[in-house]
């Protein structure tokens, strides 16, 4: 009994030497993990630091957590953490940078209305680069909600005077294409002649397919009419005719929308090229 009691007392004193990991050590460990590329581990550690950091020693912790969530593709959590980071940040320029990161999360989710709402809340700019970046993102958000006039108006101030004609040309060409491939117009073409809308949009195979299919059914309808009478033709062939005729019209509409989305992608790529030439190479 006596040795047991002595051992217990001695080992109880050892407990005094034991200390838990401090918040600084956890932060350093998280940083190490981040540097090594162990993002999941770094994220867990940073979240632990954020939880225990009651004195707000690490002001940038939420930004780091946001970055890690963004890298892992969890844009909702990233936006939430960037939002917290922007609220506790004291420096105005860093606050704007964080808000722009939050905007990137909305862009990744194709949620352009939320992005725009965030961008329009930024009213003061600390330097011209930040103003340009905000202008660029605002332009993209307007482009995303298909308000192309506002997109051009937001993008114009960030470019130098000599690049403006090219920017306007990109937008005017895109506007022309949108009018040319207006879905209503393409639908009407396919209503008048099945397959015409698809052919006009450059989808030749689909257009010929529709023409042959609907034409074939029409021929069968006429043959049935002549052989068996009008009522037989109506009852047996008209459902098929209706099905592929209206299907072709819908197909034409889809072809028009696809064509516009290609033109939109092309216009956007040209805008980005213009940004690279005018803003990045000549900051």
């Amino acid at each position: 009994m006596k040795p047991k009691a002595i051992f217990t007392i001695i080992f109880s004193f050892f407990a005094l030497l034991c200390t838990s990991q401090t918040i600084e050590e956890t932060y350093r460990f998280a940083e190490e993990q981040f540097q090594k590329g162990n993002y999941q581990s770094a994220l867990t550690e940073f979240q632990r630091v954020a939880f225990f950091d009651s004195e707000h020693q690490f002001g940038n912790i939420y930004r780091k957590i946001g970055d890690l969530f963004y890298a892992s593709g969890d844009y909702n959590s990233a936006a939430k953490n960037f939002d917290i980071a922007s609220r506790i940040e004291t420096s105005d320029s860093i606050k704007t940078e964080i808000l722009l990161k939050k905007v990137l999360c909305f862009f990744a989710q194709e949620n352009y209305y939320f992005a725009l709402s965030e961008l329009l809340s930024i009213t003061s700019f600390q330097n011209s680069r930040l103003a340009n970046k905000t202008g660029l993102y605002t332009g993209i958000a307007f482009f995303g909600i298909e308000d192309y006039n506002q997109a051009l108006a937001s993008l114009s101030p960030i470019f130098p005077q000599e690049a403006l004609p090219e920017l306007e040309q990109i937008f005017s060409r895109f506007e022309k294409m949108r009018k040319r491939y207006r879905p209503g117009k393409i639908e009407m073409m396919s209503i008048l002649l099945p397959g015409l809308g698809q052919i006009y949009c450059g989808n030749l195979a689909s257009g010929i397919n529709s023409m042959v299919l609907v034409g074939g059914i029409a021929v069968v309808a006429v043959w049935t009419w002549h052989t068996y009478g009008l009522l037989d033709a109506l009852l047996s062939v008209s459902p098929w005719y209706y099905r592929y005729y209206t299907g072709g019209v819908q197909n034409a509409r889809g072809a028009a929308l696809e064509r516009i989305s290609h033109e939109r992608e092309e216009a956007y790529q040209k805008i980005i090229e213009l940004v690279e030439t005018n803003l990045i190479q000549r900051p």
Binding site: F107, K133, I140, G144, E258, S261, E265, E276
Partner: peptide, 13 residues
């Protein structure tokens, strides 16, 4: 600086 790599792939058809 402008996050071009992030915004480049938007609006893919």
């Amino acid at each position: 600086y402008y996050g071009i790599s992030e915004i480049k792939g938007l609006f893919e058809a």
